[in-house]
Amino acid sequence: MEPQALENAALAAAGAATSVEEIENVRVEFLGRKSELKLALREVRDRETGMALNALRERLEDAIDAREAELERAELDRRLTDERVDVTMPGTPIRRGHLHLITQIRREVEDIFLGLGYTVIDGREVETTRYNFDALNFPPGHPTRSPLQTLFLDDETVLRTETSPSQIRTMESQEPPVYIVTLGRVYRRDTPDATHTPTFHQVECLAVDEGITLGDLEGTLDYLLKALFGEERRSKFVTHHFPFTEPSVEALVSCHICDGPGCPVCRHSGWIEVGGSGMVDPNLFEFVGYDPERYTGFAFGWGLERIAVLRHGIPDLRELWRNDPRLLGQF
């Protein structure tokens, strides 16, 4: 074909191409290895014809590239205009795991105390009566010593009724200062109902050092309560009685539901009892060989389930042991 006619035909074909695919066909037809132009170039002998044909090839390449770019742009525009999803369609499901609510609370409490410089101690669940009762100053005849309230393996072995035996074991194994928390399962012969399960979880805290005061206990618990229930909460401490502490106090937190006036959650008092605490009874120090004149300390033991009930509104503690995915998945 005569070069001008070839050029005209190629430009016309490029102009007529309506898709990236068609323009590729045009490229193959006019510039491919078996195209008329390529064949002519292969056969060219004189320099002048060669230069002219090469110039023609470049012009055709530019034209086809330009047309291709134009078509690509048009195609992208069309995709952007035509393609739509219903953005409210759900995503592809990915199996999600959940930590148990009590584990979440356990970690939260651990982290609060780690931040304060405390060490986390695991403790044992099966304990001797010596550690579970005697060392903790439970008087003979105390109801908790009764097989009505405590699970016994034999006369001298029980399932721990509180996390406190770990206090004794820790103090026996090291000199003060002691700053520890223990979290874990405890066992009591409580008939299961909405507010009791025979196994539940406690957090136990013990601080022993020179100069520890009741004010330190209140300050620490106030910090913990605010961390768990919100900065705007207030705390209050009232007298109580426990074998292992003297003085003993019960911690209360201002009701996070009504914030004062009274509601069913706080039994119309504006305050919610959270748990027992106090200054370590000197008898415990004597048991482990600490000097009660030199050292003082505080301790508290709270139920993690109670925190779950108060903060998350769990209506029935037994549900925390059923592992219904509909409950596990909420947290």
Binding site: F113, L114, L116, G117, P177, Y179, I212, G219, Y223, V238
Partner: peptide
């Protein structure tokens, strides 16, 4: 009990980990 200043123990030697 409701008149105590809220304080924190001194914690000169602690290992929070």
């Amino acid at each position: 009990l409701d008149r105590l200043p809220y304080t924190m123990p001194l914690r000169r030697h602690v290992q929070g980990r």
